[in-house]
Simulated assay, not measured.
Amino acid sequence: MSTHTPRIAVIGAGPGGLTCARILQRYGIPVTVHDRESGPWSRDQGGTLDLDEDNGQKALREAGLLDDFFRLSRPEGQEMRQLDTSGRVLFHHVPGAGERFKPEIDRGTLRRLLLDSLEPGTVRWSRTLRSVEGPAGGPRRLRFADGTVVEADLVIGADGAWSTVRRALSDATPEYTGTSFLEAWFHDVENEHPAVAALVGPGSAAAADGERGLFAQRNSDDHIRVYVIQRVPADWITAAGLAVEDTAAIRSLLLERYRDWAPDLRRLFTDNDGRYVDRPIHALPVPHTWDHDPAVTLLGDAAHLMPPLGVGVNLAMLDAFELALALARHDTVGEAVRAYEGTMLPRSARMQHLLDHGAEELVSDELPDFAQEGMAAR
């Protein structure tokens, strides 16, 4: 920045926000990250991620963290199995030696890598944003729940699906897609759940019948997460007269809904450790755009929430990479934001159109294109 050092505030300490902060600091640009959580490990960070070499890995390279990522990632997690409801394997991809197109890494591990790379004090915890105030064009005032008020020349909304920053730019809110996940956890799987471990393997395993599906995903430290996928109303649990804490009753309901599925597959939601986690899937309207404001912009799910089809974190980190570079290369914040949005908004619109109604693919009983190509090659 040729005129003065801008005051940059990132809202959200997820992969996108932390990646943006890391790259900005590598270019000598000060930045502060605000997050509502009480600390970096105050809650479970979620499952595993595959970072593509064209998106997430590209951002980590610019962040100077790619070698560390490869050291921490699990290339064996690229293995994929597609099954039918009888448990028969329809497609099985085993990564080749040295294959690193999209190795897996746990969300918590990635967060630790990014946090450890930042200057001390970069992240301010227990900062729940209530509002973004001030005139369009800035400076903007950030008002937090604890009474703190921070003034910023640029506010970067990396605060996810239910972004508070987004309200300063857009009236759009996420809409329910008609598809819901129910998450189940398995711990110490090689000893306590050997049948589940064998079914899933070192990567992932999926099955679907057109209306419902199962997706199981190996995590590090001998954990497996399973997602029970259904096309149901968002309130399907309460509509059945249940609460998410009613584990046994929900399990009985699932056994009825999956009664024609193989016992080995039903084990993915009957043998889990602990309660289920309800995760209805939402997406932003397609396309999601806004009028340019030189003092506020968005990245990741705050900008383009889509169904979970393997692109969310990769696009968030690519957004972060491009925004940080734009800020490093332009004379003013406004010029940088305009350049960033000129690339990001068309890209995200194309992807939003591509994945519109994509939640339905999560329960499709058709093999994905790459699997059909693999079958043909054999």
Rank of each mutant, 00 (worst) to 15 (best):
S2K: 10
H4M: 10
P6Q: 07
G12F: 10
A13P: 08
G16A: 15
G17Q: 10
L24A: 05
P30M: 10
T32R: 15
H34V: 06
S38N: 05
W41D: 15
R43V: 05
D44L: 04
Q45V: 11
G47H: 02
L49D: 01
D52V: 04
K58Y: 07
R61F: 11
E62R: 14
L72P: 08
S73F: 11
S73C: 15
P75D: 08
E76Y: 00
G77S: 09
R81Q: 09
T85F: 00
G87V: 00
A97L: 05
G98W: 14
F101W: 14
K102E: 04
P103D: 12
L113S: 09
L114R: 13
L114W: 05
S117E: 04
T122I: 11
T122P: 00
R124T: 11
R124A: 12
R127V: 01
R127H: 14
T128R: 15
T128D: 13
S131D: 14
G134R: 15
S163Q: 12
E175W: 04
A184C: 13
H193T: 04
P194R: 02
L199T: 09
A205L: 09
D209E: 08
D209T: 04
G213A: 13
R218K: 02
S220L: 06
D221I: 01
D222W: 02
I224P: 04
R225S: 01
Y227M: 00
V232K: 00
P233N: 06
W236G: 01
E245C: 00
A249S: 01
L254H: 00
L254P: 09
Y258N: 03
R267N: 09
R267A: 15
L268G: 05
D271P: 00
D278Q: 11
R279Y: 07
R279E: 06
H282A: 02
H288W: 03
H292G: 06
A303I: 03
H304L: 08
P308S: 10
L315Y: 10
L315Q: 15
M317I: 06
A324T: 06
A326Y: 04
A328C: 12
Y340F: 15
M344L: 13
P346S: 10
A349W: 05
F370L: 07
F370N: 06
